[in-house]
Write a protein that binds this DNA or RNA. Structure first.
Lengths: 166, 166
DNA sequence: AACTAATAAGACTAATATAACCTTATTTAT
DNA sequence: ATAAATAAGGTTATATTAGTCTTATTAGTT
């Protein structure tokens, strides 16, 4: 019941791109270094975002990444869907999932409401908002990074499932 | 971003137990057969629920399972927590997770709200409600079971991630 | 006391999903 | 041409999830 690390990476890419002046291209390596993300894996993530229509890329000299849509029209929910596919916290919530009892299954309905409530919250703020927020922050340089202390601003790597930092 | 199959199994166990008259013990094998779940794995799940204090077991002849708490005091959210641990859709939502920017990280706040909204919905109905709902239903006998069409009432096995039934 | 039917527990294996890496294209400005 | 960038896809590594197997332990019945 977690978003994947790749989704987290994607969110960071979008925040990054939403924060730059219009149409300027940012190198993927720059993003990778700034957030200390594995470059190759990040490039794969970039491709997914491109296919989803959220960002666009240009190759070659002066190439790089930029948003393909207005920053105020994209939310974390969109990124989640782009990376992990249509949200469904249980298989029975997939649109095309057939189940004889679906129409009167109470568990199904509860799960659906739970998912809807979550997605609604994830859709409330756009990356335009997020970029504004992050703008004033001191982004991580090597010294204040610790791999175990992942978060969206400075951080790096996902905490292990049961690993709780004291 | 899915609940695990084990959580699904656990929900079924609880619905099952919530539906029987007070204090009667149900054999784990019975539950396994009724829902076509792998018996050994189900037993492991039972143990987790026991340790979480949600059900109790008795060994030996006439042994079996029953709820350890009133059915109207347990929700799907409790089962989710029992099986998967404290809910945290991202590592930075763990209570003890340290992040320098946590206090003013907007992403953190959005995720927290999303998670809270989801958990709130999962906490609204108790297993007393769910058992009532299920009571009138025709539970699956072999003929109406198909492994690919998983859901909480009749069904059996989780659909694969991207497998969509036509 | 012996027997039988039940769960308990933990080690082990298998399957799947996620994350990361590596190599070789392809594109674009200079 | 050349250098600098992304594109693409195959491969490996790691983590998580799911399931199995074996051996114990418990409790009722005879």
């Amino acid at each position: 019941m977690q978003i994947t690390r790749q989704t987290e990476y994607a969110v960071r890419i979008l925040i990054e791109l939403a924060g730059v002046p219009d149409s300027k291209m940012i190198r993927s390596r720059t993003v990778a270094e700034k957030h200390q993300l594995p470059e190759k894996f990040l490039n794969k993530t970039v491709q997914i975002l491109v296919r989803a229509g959220l960002i666009e890329t240009r190759r070659g000299l002066r190439g790089g990444l930029r948003l393909a849509v207005p920053a105020d029209s994209v939310t974390i929910a969109d990124v989640l869907t782009a990376i992990e596919g249509k949200v469904a916290i249980n298989p029975c919530l997939h649109e095309n999932h057939y189940c004889e009892h679906k129409s009167d299954c109470r568990v199904n309905k509860i799960l659906q409401r739970a998912q809807d409530a979550m997605v609604a919250e994830l859709s409330k703020e756009t990356f335009a908002d997020l970029a504004r927020e992050e703008a004033g922050k001191n982004f991580s340089t090597s010294s204040d990074l610790r791999r175990d202390f992942a978060c969206f601003v400075t951080s790096v790597n996902r905490q292990q499932k049961d690993r709780v930092v004291p």
